[in-house]
Nucleic acid binder design. Structure first.
Lengths: 245, 245
DNA sequence: GCCTTACGTTGATCTGCATCAAGGAGCCCT
DNA sequence: AGGGCTCCTTGATGCAGATCAACGTAAGGC
């Protein structure tokens, strides 16, 4: 169970890598281990409301959480999708800027913010690692902005499936070169909130991609991708990307 | 001229604050001052192409730069707007993820990346300051995602004007409670790329806001806002925000 | 003076996605 | 088995914003 704190700390080992790197086996790590605790949430439960005080930072151990923004009239936009191993929290900030909601049953590995920040202040490589992770998130947010601002509904759906497939492949370290299967961890409505569409359009475009042989479905959630490059084309992404980032 | 490096370093003084804080008057600062240099760019010149090696980090001294993403067929989405005092660069990253373009004549205060990163590694409060700045950018990106995904054209325009007015007010430290004037630093086309619209729609919506008395125009670029709260309402933002963040 | 070029406005028309509406499929509960 | 969920699909219609097109306006060059 030690690995989840390592995900947060270690700049040397990729975040998905479960091994312990030499640099992390320090007093700092030991201190973090002492203050670490686990929290569980039920599907649908809101973990933090926008504007609330944030008492902890941590990473997702299992399950899915989303970061959403809501307008007064109820329009919603997802602005972050947290899969296992993703970090949650804003060291140095006292209040949350967005709602964080568990969309499935969820377990998080948490650290109270104060001791975590104290540790950060004295351990430069942890602060640097967090900066790197935040820059990654910023990059992802900017790709997402291109999707929201300029892509068609069909391209948005293809992009979402490819993003999830990529993350999935990265997490499980399997590099299949042929057909590929993914479980969509979101409902049609959640996908719509992710993509800036309505759930009807999401459903229609998934049907269209299926009709055109870009994907096939077993059940509502299970997608098979016969040709990943074809999917990337449909997504309007610059090619090459592939599964190996 | 010392102040621009201070913008990068100093966590204690707000970034817009020109005074030198005690904490920054250190050997680190002296070292940074030695490696600091200035670069000028002409309007329209691309500073860094996506995928290029980035040799420096720095901050904008004067002028405007934009961060954009482009699809193969030419669709463009702005993903960052850099006004004076904004930081550019990704410590710890070797290549740029997006195009950076000077949209006006531009002066930047630069540091070569290597010595800057060395300094970062030994000075925790600099790394922490950069983390804070990156978190700010991430927040801004997420607000921007709500705008792109869920706001109407009219709301988008009102949002953009209010964002620029806010930044302007913050930069010049003037808090006028009554009418307010702003210079839009972007062409209609650039605004369209910012907002995920076409330039025609931008033009039409600006005309509409003018017709409805939300703003008035002198020339194409100079906007007067008689009632800022009204503008915020039009932007669909939760109220209160105001000019004093 | 006139030409050129960049930028902006406005109108007419088209279309992709939203909206409104109905019904199907799987699941749990009694 | 049947009722009531939640989630998903598909059809009909409407509209916001894109597209196509024409014209206006201001600045610089000669």
């Amino acid at each position: 169970m030690i690995e989840h704190s390592i995900h947060v700390q270690c700049g040397e080992c990729p975040i998905r890598h479960r091994a312990v790197c030499a640099r992390c086996e320090s007093d700092e790590l030991a201190r973090l281990e002492q203050i670490k605790y686990y929290r569980s949430f039920q599907a649908g439960q809101t973990i933090i409301w926008s504007g609330d005080r944030m008492e902890f930072v941590g990473s997702v151990v299992s399950g899915i959480a989303t970061l959403t923004q809501t307008m007064e009239d109820g329009r919603r936009q997802m602005v972050g999708l947290l899969l296992p191993s993703d970090f949650v929290g804003r060291p140095g900030r006292s209040t949350a800027a967005f709602d964080v909601t568990a969309t499935t049953d969820l377990v998080m590995c948490c650290f109270r913010k104060k001791p975590f920040e104290e540790m950060m202040a004295t351990t430069p490589h942890v602060a640097q690692r967090l900066l790197e992770m935040t820059l990654d998130e910023l990059d992802a947010a900017r790709e997402w902005m291109l999707l929201l601002g300029r892509k068609t509904a069909r391209e948005k759906i293809a992009s979402l499936i490819s993003i999830i497939a990529r993350r999935d492949a990265a997490l499980h370290l399997r590099r299949s070169s042929g057909a590929l299967t993914v479980d969509l961890p979101l409902t049609r409505e959640e996908m719509a909130d992710y993509l800036g569409l309505t759930l009807e359009t999401v459903s229609r475009q998934i049907s269209a991609l299926k009709r055109d042989g870009v994907i096939s479905l077993e059940g509502n959630r299970h997608v098979t991708i016969p040709d990943f490059d074809r999917l990337l084309e449909e997504a309007g992404d610059d090619s090459d990307g592939g599964l190996l980032v």
